[in-house]
Amino acid sequence: MELVFKNTTGLVSVPRHYCPGCTHGVIHRMVAEVIEELGVRESAVGISPVGCSVIAYNYFNCDMQQAAHGRAPALATGIKRVRPDLTVFTYQGDGDLASIGTAETVQAANRGEKVTVIFVNNAIYGMTGGQMAPTTMPGQVTTTSPAGRDVNHCGYPIRVVELLATLRTPAYLVRVSAHDEVHLVQAKQAIRKAFRYQLEGRCFSFVEVLSICPTNWGLSPAEASQWLANTMIPYYPLGEIKTPDDGPVTEAHHAQ
């Protein structure tokens, strides 16, 4: 019989702990498939964050390090600088990357570290039980913004890709979404491109993946996908915000 589907060798075949409907699982698989397809599983070192994906080291079938909260880009820097032959990626959530690890994220991007960052943005803190994230939408109810996020109190959600795009250092910065099949195809293409740029030694590559959290949003998976499409995508536009072919950001660019 013809084999039409098999598990990727990039993942360990174990049950994962993610909630029903969570998109972490499919994002894991896309990253793992890209690692397999590019033939870099045996040179890959992944870094798991603190957050829902903290134990991603048990899921990816490659060497893994577990980082302190927000520090994954610093670990990635340390590994890649001493072992440029390794393929280094981080897998981080919004609290990890855009809150406590802001400095590490911005500085790694600005140095042009030849690593790949997978940034899962689901607009909420999942593991700790649904608190407000730096990417929580205006008016969005969380356990620490019970009346909805008040932008006069704590500012607007951070658009990390756009923030990094202001840096002059060349980079591959892209935002994709994991809420339906069509977008998943685009997401995987972006992830593959991000790893390619690393393998070519070209630039820092960063893929923000909009993701759903049915459990902490209090929605069914279908409702959650709808909410992402209707609420998040208008605020977090999809697409390649910057590629290394754009060259360095110039003053004229900023003036536009």
């Binding site: 980082a67 302190a68 520090r71 610093a74 670990l75 340390g78 590994i79 400095a103 500085q107």
Partner: peptide
């Protein structure tokens, strides 16, 4: 903070 975590990675 970053320097010491780079140490961790390396």
């Amino acid at each position: 903070v970053a320097a010491s975590n780079m140490l961790y990675g390396a």
